[in-house]
Design a protein around this nucleic acid. Structure first.
Lengths: 251, 251
DNA sequence: CAGTGGTCTAGACCACTCT
DNA sequence: GAGTGGTCTAGACCACTGT
């Protein structure tokens, strides 16, 4: 046969998962060996593929389970409220609020990593302020969100205190003479580092989105970089754009 | 030992990859078996982990190689040009232009998948127009980009023709009485389906971003949904936002 | 041709969960 | 205690790549 046994088996299992034949739990490895007449290695290869596709989870001593995702809306422009599209956005936002949101905040002075230094136009050997946040829903981490500021931008302000800034850091910056009038968003996608997987308790087959926001003043000075790590199994990033400076144009 | 051999080995290999000890190619499986005194299964388990983290590629009969990524900027609001942040955006855009961009276009009438129908506020049994695009750089696919329109929005226009619309579809829609003034962007992250992996020639450990754009008229009617699939190893999504309706606020 | 990764097998022991 | 997934071994054959 041209397609390997494990790939064939994976395709069958995937189809059954998709059509709902397996509600919740899959047959055990032993049962699959019997049903398909293959070795345990082959069964495990097929299951490993599905794990890495994010379709399954496994629990040692228990079994394999069809994965259920619940994603929450993440709205980088949260204050800027407009009429919602349909009720969907509201539904999700509401869902997140019900999940008892919380966060931990640390503030420290650090040498910026290269990607931050480049965006902040600051040399790497210069010290900047980092506000490190881990955001939780029902005690489960769902985002890493770290902000970096040049020292002069936040020195002596509330942004240096490791706690919530109820007015929002934007307002604090504006009062300090650094009003942010423009932002550049960059988003890309990759697999997590082992550290991220650990900190965010990510299962196999769970990619992350990286969202980098660079904020600028009216005279185009970068005054902040926000780096958010968003586990793919629990986040949807949303933007609401006016103007017809729209999408790619579909030419 | 508490950590499994394969995990330990994977960590060592990861460190060596990161610090550049392996330039390009890794030792063969046989060499790793010798060096670490473990079975081939264990070596392969470690390598599989690194493959699934997107750090390696493998070529049958040749070896394992450190993965090199080259990501291109994707700018949903491409026409809307503003001063670039630093030279980076330009660098990337230029890089993409040098890569001989091309695309294939198919237009057909289809029943919308549920996520499309919901956003378009159209029943699933109603037929809509789909413009299906595969976008390539140097002949290599780097994006799937499919647009869906209610029939009355595009009927009798150039958007029905399977070819480039040099003016941009937005202009065509506006002429037809459906000017788009607002867009909702939704972005999430997941592992690709086998079909996507095939169509986009994705290696293991390559997640994709899903970018859904819903476009609205002034009276809030959804007139288009664009669904873009972006392989994580070759795309960066960017937005340029004015106004201080900024990011999450970092409270 | 030798070397490489891809596939597959049979068998073993372990830690863990559930009843 | 029975069942489960996680780990690990030794060994085999294959298709493919490079020289």
């Amino acid at each position: 046969m041209s397609t390997p046994k494990h790939a064939h088996l994976a395709a069958i299992l995937r189809a059954r998962i998709d059509d709902g034949s397996y509600e919740g739990r899959l047959p055990s490895e032993a049962e699959l060996m019997d049903e398909f007449g293959v070795s345990r290695t082959t069964v495990r290869a097929a299951l490993a593929a599905l794990l890495n596709q994010g379709l399954l989870t496994s629990a040692s001593g228990v079994g394999y389970f069809v994965r259920q995702l619940e994603r929450f809306l993440y709205r980088p422009q949260d204050d800027f409220r407009r009429t919602p599209i349909n009720s969907e956005v509201d539904k999700f936002t509401l869902a997140a609020r019900k999940r008892n949101p919380s966060q931990t905040i640390e503030v420290s002075l650090v040498h910026p990593p290269e990607p931050i230094a480049r965006r902040l136009l600051v040399p790497q050997d210069e010290v900047v302020v980092r506000r490190k946040r881990l955001r939780l829903l029902d005690g489960m981490p769902y985002q890493i969100n770290d902000s970096y500021y040049p020292r002069d931008v936040v020195d002596g302000t509330e942004a240096m205190v490791p706690g919530d800034v109820s007015r929002g850091v934007n307002e604090v910056l504006a009062e300090n003479g650094f009003a942010q009038v423009r932002a550049l968003d960059e988003i890309w996608v990759r697999m997590p580092t082992p550290e991220e997987a650990d900190r965010l308790t990510l299962g196999p087959g769970t990619p992350v989105g990286v969202h980098m926001i660079t904020g600028f003043t009216a005279d185009d000075r970068p005054i902040r970089v926000v780096r958010t790590i968003l586990p793919g199994d629990r986040n949807i990033i949303t933007f609401d754009r006016t103007h017809p400076d729209h999408e790619d144009g579909d030419r």
